[in-house]
Design a protein around this nucleic acid. Structure first.
Length: 290
DNA sequence: CTCGATCCCTGGACGC
DNA sequence: TGCGTCCAGGGATCGA
């Protein structure tokens, strides 16, 4: 499940392998995850891949300008969201296509940049100029770039549960279920606590926990739970470091209490009931009707 | 504003 | 071995 560290890992791999390449042609399979398939087919051929960036959980492939817009400075990019099972990687054109390969871009070095996605929870969009900027503005701060003050304001200014806030891409871009749970465990904060109710020190603790975990996960090239592979087809190693996620019933690494699982914000949330204390009145407030 | 529910989709785990 | 069922989850959307 590609979150910030996994997408960063893919972006770095792509930087090494496809930057500078020109796209010669595009072939599409199923297209229900593409904003405008016809545009992808028509706009990409002839364009050079100038750079690859991560933007939250998106890969941003910066493209050379359109033929008729050389001077306008109009930025163009291919946005790729890997969803749950998306993979983007270059392979030699001779190699057989993996199952669920839905986008194939032939490159000028004879290789193909292939997008495969079994569940098609991903997204692909070609964007340019103002619509690109507009799309990027929809998202919150990058957790690795945000200053503590900004992070704190984003969290404490909201009454939603902290888990929901961490997952909300408009608040922070790039955090998903795994790293939300891992950072809450590290900071000893229960997922159902309300953002606005966190103490100053807790927010600071969470900020440091989140940054530290994301950085360490990037070094280990992300977590491979089911089938995540980076741009070079390699799995990540960070799943071995998980302290909460996926550990229901197992002993907490700090206190040996059994890790519990609850649904918060519609997602499985793993936490230590001893280290991460439930909020006061977390069930139903006393005397509240119904 | 925030919530839960629902849908999208497929593969893997599990029970029989 | 095979079949049915459940679950995983990021994000959009809708009604409460």
């Amino acid at each position: 499940m590609p979150e910030l560290p996994e997408v960063e890992t893919v972006a770095r791999g792509l930087q090494r392998h496809i930057v500078g390449r020109r796209i010669l042609s595009v072939t599409l399979g199923k297209t229900d995850f593409i904003d405008n398939p016809a545009e992808i087919e028509h706009e990409l051929p002839g364009r050079k891949i100038r750079g690859v960036e991560r933007y939250g959980k998106f890969l941003l492939l910066r493209l050379s300008p359109k033929e008729n817009a050389r001077e306008t400075g109009c930025e163009t990019a291919l946005l790729v969201h890997l969803g749950m099972t998306g993979m983007l990687r270059p392979q030699s054109a001779g190699q057989p296509h993996a199952r669920h390969t839905h986008v194939v871009a032939l490159l000028d070095d004879g290789r193909e940049l292939r997008y495969t996605d079994a569940r098609r929870f991903g997204r692909m969009a070609y964007l340019e100029g103002e619509s690109l900027q507009e799309e990027l503005r929809r998202f919150g701060a990058d957790p690795l770039e945000a200053r503590l003050e900004d992070f704190a304001a984003r969290i404490r200014g909201k009454r939603a549960r902290i888990k929901a806030l961490l997952l909300d891409q408009k608040v922070l871009r790039g955090v998903g279920n795994i790293y939300a749970d891992e950072s809450l465990w590290k900071a000893k904060i229960h997922p159902k606590r309300l953002g606005a109710r966190l103490r100053r020190e807790e927010v600071e603790e969470l900020y440091r926990a989140l940054q530290g975990i994301l950085q360490r996960a990037i070094v280990m090239r992300g977590s491979s739970i089911a089938d995540f592979l980076d741009a070079e087809g390699q799995p990540g190693e960070y799943q071995r470091q998980h302290r909460a996620y996926g550990r229901e019933g197992k002993a907490c690494f700090r206190c040996k209490a059994k890790i519990k699982r609850v649904i918060v914000a519609g997602r499985s949330s793993y936490f230590c009931p001893h280290c991460q204390r439930a909020p006061r009145g977390g069930k139903r407030r006393r005397g509240a009707k119904r």
